[in-house]
Amino acid sequence: MESKEMRAAYADTLVELAATNPEIVVLEADLMRATGTGSFQKAYPDRLVNVGVAEANMVGIASGLSATGKIPFASTFGCFASRRAFDQFFLSANYARLNVKLVGTDPGVTAAYNGGTHMPFEDLALMRTVPGLTIAEPSDPASCAALVRAAAAMYGCVYLRLPRKAAPYLYGSGEKFEFGKSKVLKDGKDLCFVSLGALMAGECLAAAKLLEAEGINAGVIDALSLKPLDSPAILAAARATGRIITAENHQIAGGLGSAVAELLAENSFGGGFARVGVRDLFGEVGTQDYLMKRFGLTAADLARQARAMLGA
């Protein structure tokens, strides 16, 4: 399957947007070599602002830039984008109703060798509490490019969660994406996985394959947009299959699993429901494969959950 680095999809799209929109600027906090926006700097040296190791200031400056009409994309590791610059993003950007696009890379276990200090399992939970904020985690290079374009096109703050590593294409170039809309990656009759992000989309598809061999027909919804959540599509899948399992590279508290649980409970869904994600643990160092097993995020974990729910 063809793949592309997610950070390349991000940076290439910014270069493309900047060609026709002079207000697009990119901010970095000394992680440009990791987040991959060096190509943007090469193309538009005067429009990439590297603030040094100062994420709070980066978000403050991005807010000021947006007050003058600029459209700033500020990128850094997700742990710093959320935990370190949260008050700045909350107040200077969101509460002030400005137009800042914040990009948190290396989500969850993809932080791998950077370890627990750099492993955001809580960024989505924090961001979900910000009123009116748009939050998305693309699942492949095509959805990444499309959602970066969508973020630039709308007025208002956006938090995009991106792994920087290569991810296989799940969608063709003609596919349309918008905030608040999910995609059906696979139809299923017995249950439906709802996944967020490239990593978990891949694991859910693999789990569905494992289950298929056992005669269990599992569907996969690629949530893409955490806020707004595609409530109609998820509710419809819940009612059609009677069973929902969420899958996220994040704490089960406050992220996708919580959002779907709230949706289902508030709509009197009485079927099966389970959350696969990190269960109240801090991050650790290790290979991504090790960490996926350590935190129970693999296809095998998802399949086990499905079997348990079906009593199989």
Binding site: G60, I61, L65, S66, A67, L91, S92, A96
Partner: peptide
Amino acid sequence: VDMTTGSLGQGFSAAVGVALGLLMQ
């Protein structure tokens, strides 16, 4: 009123961002 402020230190960063934006423009 040109900027929302109150959490101390934040307005100063924003002012710096405004100054940069105006120079860019």
